[in-house]
Amino acid sequence: MSLLSLFTRKRSAPVARERLQLLLAHERALEGHTDLAAILQEEILAVIAKHIPIDRDKVNVKLDRGSQVSTLEIDIQMPPAAKA
């Protein structure tokens, strides 16, 4: 610890405040929607499975909420044999 740091002690409260504001903005956006991706995954899977035999593990649904744009990403790997 340098001698200077004794006199310029960093204030920690503003850091706490900023970290909380960022974190809570993110957590609030997810509030109540945490299960949405799982629900979508199940329903999408059910629809596709009606027509194509697919592997449950090869379906991936990802929900990203940004401040400007939110994206819903659905990634389904088709089995090589299935040609619809």
Binding site: R11, S12, A13, P14, A16, R17, L20
Partner: peptide, 15 residues
């Protein structure tokens, strides 16, 4: 709080 080591009342209220 006055020394900037603890969240102020206003900070918590705002959040």
């Amino acid at each position: 709080a006055a020394r900037g080591e603890m969240l102020k009342v206003e900070d918590v209220l705002e959040i």
